[in-house]
Nucleic acid binder design. Structure first.
Lengths: 333, 333
DNA sequence: CGTGGGATG
DNA sequence: CATCACACG
């Protein structure tokens, strides 16, 4: 039979293997991490234990509370968060799913999930978010976005009817009675700008898509827009004008998107704030030094800006090379 | 069916289930060891710190001493060790180079080094072993053998003049005044025996090669011969007769090699010893349970068997899925 | 369940 | 300096 023949190929006997399930669980759960006895075996065990990821989540030190009010003085009643997780499986292993419990947004949008349906980590499949929409890219382990909601949307759309981009798992739209929520992972222009063409193809198409939605209901766009808009939005503007995320073309694309009727909500609330980033390369200890970029945004249709109470960077939340961002608002009517 | 589809997807038997369990276990236990400060950055730093490998070398608990004597009653004066390191860089990170200091063989042979000249870890480039010969495979990260010697050989030969196999970094021959040392990493017959043909091509050619050497001077052959000779040489002989390393063809190839004039030195000294293995799959905690195979050998030309004082498995030495093996002898005259 | 490489960011 | 997929064992 199939199973046994596969087992055999790995030089493992069938029966012992099945017994192992229990055995291994028990032994792992009773063995504290760290510490390895020098048994006369157990390279496998050593490997397994050494594999654990060390990024401790120190959520207890972070205050997620806010009593921000919208323009009319009403306290926010709806929270949307967005996070480029750089691989949701890796993020989950680092304890990233705890963000759900502590931030507890009404809707969490994820980018760069890098999973298909079968690979979604259980940590994110929680009862509080019964309405989950995971859109993978065609290519395994690449891109992918998700939308997790407490409330059931009226409708959900994957992609935006574009044959060039819809294979890459970059857009989910959720329709609610009084607004649309669009989450997106915008194509990266690539090292040496090798995919700047793809990006330049994307920008007008995406702008057209959200503009058409905006003609029907107000829209919130969130996600990794893969651009730092202005010089203040990255640590080293001077040296990055030819690099992905800060080219003239990409910045102008973002400006044009805003001109279509949207507001960059973080900048709306913090027009002069410097050193406010949402991405730091893993390289060169950039996060500790806050050498970063603001690539993740909450945009809102201009006509609902007054519904927004605050827009926050959760820069203390670890688990990815991006941090989550959060929008607090009163639901449009 | 669910199980088989999981198996197929991961190409690993039932292990996916175990991986799931481990991840859960790991995520549960993440609160224990590390303690990370909640900096407002430093995902990069966190990653860097998490990167260190935890396989502690407990060499201090291992006794490498021996006063074994050869057949004539002379204490050994020459030591040859052999180790399939399963990637010498990974092995070095796990502290495997400490084996050199503690075993301190005259010659150390390595298999599955998986490095080219530029990738050799500094931990193995030690002054005590000034004469080093590293043979990579043409294909990066694949196969590769090395020979590290205190004494300079009279000559060293890479490969064995075979166009089929010499690109794969499998044989080094060192000539000394009174004997040859051949170290080899024999081709694995592969999952589903996909490369059994290559192996069957190898066996007679390699046998011919060492036989011709043996006609000139006595020979020591060491390395990963990728076969368990007899039922006693693996934990589960019954279920592995169709699997790489224990097929009739491979076992007969080994028998024929011995019949050409060589002695399996471990079995010579320990003819009845059971549960004596040199390889344990990392899977299923096999090493802790000593579910293994004897795949690594020291062979000696029959006419120098009386020069050999002992042959040892260093099964406590971690750093690879194989353990090192060691031959103690008095140099032939 | 590990090792390596390579693509991608 | 990370993520993930794939080859190989």
């Amino acid at each position: 039979m199939l199973i046994s023949s596969l087992l055999l190929r790995n030089r493992i006997p069938v029966i012992p293997l099945l017994l192992e399930l229990n055995h291994r669980q028990l032994s792992l759960s009773t063995t504290m991490p760290g510490k390895r006895k020098s048994e006369d075996g157990s390279s496998a065990a050593a490997g397994g234990e050494a594999k654990k990821n060390k990024t401790e989540t120190q959520w207890k030190n972070i205050n997620f509370d806010s009593d921000a009010k919208d323009k009319k003085g009403n306290k926010w009643n709806f929270k949307i968060s967005s996070w480029n997780v750089d691989g949701v499986r890796a993020c989950a292993k680092k304890g990233g799913a705890a963000f759900l419990e502590h931030e507890a947004p009404d809707i969490l949008c994820l980018q760069e999930t890098k999973v298909n349906e079968k690979q979604i980590p259980g940590e994110f499949k929680v009862d509080d978010y019964p309405h989950q929409y995971w859109l993978p890219a065609k290519k395994d382990g690449y891109s992918g976005v998700a939308l997790l909601s407490k409330e059931k949307p009226d409708s959900v759309k994957f992609g935006f009817d574009d044959s060039e981009h819809d294979d890459e798992g970059r857009v989910i739209t959720a329709e609610f009675p009084t607004f649309y929520l669009v989450t997106t992972y915008v194509p990266n222009a690539g090292r040496k700008l090798v995919t700047l063409d793809k990006r330049m193809d994307w920008d007008p198409k995406f702008r057209k898509y959200v503009s058409e939605l905006d003609a029907k209901k107000p829209v919130v766009v969130c996600g990794d827009l893969n651009v730092a808009h202005k010089e203040v939005d990255l640590k080293n503007p001077k040296t990055n004008t030819k690099n992905a995320g800060f080219t003239k073309e990409e910045r102008e694309g973002f400006t044009t998107l805003l001109e279509a009727g949207f507001t960059d909500m973080y900048r709306h609330f913090y027009p002069e704030e410097k050193d406010a980033y949402t991405f730091w390369t893993y390289m060169m200890n950039c996060r500790a030094k806050n050498v970063g970029w603001r690539l993740d945004y909450m945009l809102a249709s201009n006509r609902i800006v007054d519904n927004v109470a605050d827009c926050l960077h959760r820069s203390d939340v670890l688990g990815s090379d991006h941090c989550p961002i959060t929008l607090l608002l009163t639901k449009p009517e």
